[in-house]
Design a protein around this nucleic acid. Structure first.
Lengths: 143, 143
DNA sequence: TCCAAAACAGAATCAAGTTCTATTTCTGTA
DNA sequence: TACAGAAATAGAACTTGATTCTGTTTTGGA
């Protein structure tokens, strides 16, 4: 039984194991949708890390590929845990906010075609996909 | 000779023709890359509209489909003029910041395939593509 | 157990963006 | 051309997400 996943991960990349880091990873993992720093803050039991600590560590997590952030439509940064460090995208349910990690990237072909069309050399891209999750679709048809 | 394009556009949608709006549209049109509100502000001759006026009108322009905004990596909102109200994307040069409007959307097929795979009903998406424009590629190979 | 480096706390600060109210500008009508 | 009502602007004040800074605490290897 492995109760030490986060500890091991932290060690593996040479980061010290601190309360703040363990609890932050736990909060991110427990959520099925991306969280703002305020939401993370509210979910932490006292005594809890301060906001600067939260920001600093989330930044580190992103560097390691353990998490991603994006800016939502209210211009607030949201953070979510990723289960893979491979390039991938997410789909967000517009109704319940649930976020699902997608396998791989569906755009590779379209992008190489694009390169030929516009003359640019594509280096990277960001894609946010929004929709209705299966559960919310069902809820709508029942009305 | 049509010197009244912006005036006509404003009338067409029932917006009053004001100095602020004309000058804002002109600044957006004159730039080949997306501008922050501060950059727009700096390009306006005095007496110039205040920041609230700039934000308010850019918002209106976006509603009309005349412009788009996105949040850059420093979390600052940037605005760019669009030549079409059709759904489309842009590619940004990472070196010179130039932005090019792309024809149509290359993702339609990939998204409907995605729907079948993940069970979500896709409602909308955002795509930012980054790369090197033809000019900057050439400049690199000459070094 | 001890020590140096790393990490944290918390107040202060920064700055993008918004709100609010008084004033000005625009445009249709006479 | 003058007027009136509606729309828009000016500019100060405010909100708030995010960062900086300094002194203190924690971590982990020796």
């Amino acid at each position: 039984m492995s109760c030490h996943t986060s500890k091991d991960s932290l060690h593996a990349v040479g980061m010290k194991v601190t309360k703040a880091r363990e609890v932050l990873l736990r909060v991110l993992e427990a959520s099925d949708h991306p969280l703002t720093v305020d939401e993370i803050y509210d979910r932490l039991a006292q005594p809890r890390p301060g906001r600067p600590t939260i920001y600093r560590n989330l930044e580190r997590f992103i560097q390691e590929g353990w998490a991603e952030s994006f800016v939502d439509k209210n211009q607030i940064q949201r953070f979510l845990r990723c289960s893979t460090t491979e390039h991938h995208h997410h789909i967000h349910c517009e109704k319940c906010q649930r976020t699902t990690e997608l396998d791989g990237c569906a755009m590779t072909k379209a992008l190489s075609q694009l390169e030929r069309q516009c003359g640019y050399k594509v280096t990277r891209h960001q894609l946010q996909i929004y929709g209705l999750c299966p559960g919310c679709q069902k809820a709508l048809t029942l009305k």
